[in-house]
Design a protein around this nucleic acid. Structure first.
Lengths: 250, 250
DNA sequence: CGGCGTTTTGACAGGCTTCAAGGGCCGTGG
DNA sequence: CCACGGCCCTTGAAGCCTGTCAAAACGCCG
């Protein structure tokens, strides 16, 4: 695992393509200088490989530079639950850096590029850059918020509501990450992935998707997802349209 | 809301009863001195009242000094999902301090005493005590871990497994918080609370509880919960017995 | 063309929800 | 002292939503 290329081929933080995203905050020169030294490598992972595994310790934490990933847990008999998806600018592996070991796995959904940061220097970051430390906590809190939303879905929403909720939120997040073109986002997952995220069977996910498509709220052909009626989808999901929130980077 | 008594009647941090818990780390004298000034009040809330509400901003964050609380979200039509329970030494309201507004509510399950910390000085904490900042991030990550576990339950576990999982984990946490006496914990919630946490109906929760009790893994009479066979309960839950983890305080 | 992964459909079974009603416990008030 | 109401627990019956099983259609790629 980890065909980390020798330093020098990696994207320098001051020309990070993600920094252009409107949803990320600006860095001060000092912060930027530190982050540049904090990032020690880039990791390229191909679709379908789990680069972080439940039960393992991890010496690194990562941010997604490009591509999609998902966090998941498996039960002994093979049942899988996808906890959340990670998009560009999202952080993964923080839990593994703070706790003794990972309690979930992370798998690349597409070809994936990650920025690599050493866990050993995390405390250094906390000591010298409280602003960045604050950002990291913010990120952790936001992740929790997303899971809270999913938890409500699995616990209290019907299959149709749940599906609408997930698609709406994925669309909004993908849009924030700059992945939308002409109102269309390429969703890289299969219906099996969706089913595992929704806590439903594959068959029923498919039928629910059909029903949802019949409302004309969405259009999903192949991998291209188009949101045709955001308000309708939000209504079906039983929610207001989620407001985008500015967030820190790193 | 908030019948905060004038300073002076509140428990000083250096004689905080929770510091005796084996699961909490030691403070350095400096840290302790800071935390003492960081805690500006104590809040007493009676059972059944929501002291933090979804959509509201909060100027404070809290730790539970004594009693039980739970985080929850409601849908428009009244469906409720309990996200997690908060026990002594747990922190609540962090999200509200970091984000613009609370995305969930928190209700006292029993008579509840909270330590109150001002959000306005949180950044001060981050600047001056990276060790405490680190702890807070750790707490946020741990909370996320707990929700991850619940998410798997709601998504992929049957009613029986799910119930076993929740009871096992609540028992372990209550025990860590020093709430067990002779292997018995007083669970202050009703079956309706359990149902809302499990994402099940009240009726089916009751029947599932009966089935679970028939296995002799647990005994639950009135409010007194006794774990009779931890390994069996863990097996039913489809998990190993969770290992207690040391954790920081504040 | 053949093979494989994904999507789609139909039929059936069952777990869970909903509806309904009764019982136990306890505090309040007549 | 007893009746009453409220809250919680318990149980039964009926029905729907969702899971499981099975098989076919589709699309992609070698």
């Amino acid at each position: 695992m980890g065909n980390g290329r020798p330093n020098g081929h990696i994207v320098s933080c001051d020309q990070c393509p993600l920094r252009a995203l409107s949803c990320l905050r600006e860095f001060s020169p000092d912060e930027l200088a530190f982050v540049k030294t904090f990032k020690i490598d880039e990791l390229h992972v191909e679709a379908g490989t789990s680069f972080l595994r439940e039960g393992a310790r991890s010496d690194h934490l990562y941010t997604v530079l490009s591509g999609w990933a998902f966090r998941y847990k498996m039960l002994d008999d093979g049942r899988r639950q996808i906890l959340n998806f990670a998009l560009p600018a999202d952080m993964v592996g923080l839990q593994g850096s703070l706790m003794h070991e990972m309690q979930h796995s992370v798998e690349a959904l597409t070809s994936l590029t990650l920025c690599v940061f050493p866990r050993s220097r995390l405390y250094d970051l906390y000591s010298r850059f409280p602003s960045l430390a604050y950002d990291i906590t913010w990120i952790a809190a936001r992740e929790e918020q997303l899971i809270d939303g999913n938890l409500v879905s699995l616990g209290r929403r019907s299959a149709l509501e749940r599906t609408a909720y997930l698609l709406l939120h994925l669309y909004v997040r993908a849009r924030e990450a700059g992945l939308a073109k002409d109102g269309v986002v390429v969703f890289p997952f299969t219906q099996q992935h969706l089913a595992d995220a929704l806590g439903m069977s594959l068959v029923h996910t498919n039928k629910t998707l059909k029903r949802l498509q019949a409302t004309n709220a969405i259009h999903w052909q192949g991998r291209a997802f188009k949101l045709r009626d955001k308000n309708l989808l939000a209504t079906i999901a039983g929610e207001d349209v989620p407001a985008p929130q500015g967030r820190p980077f790193i």
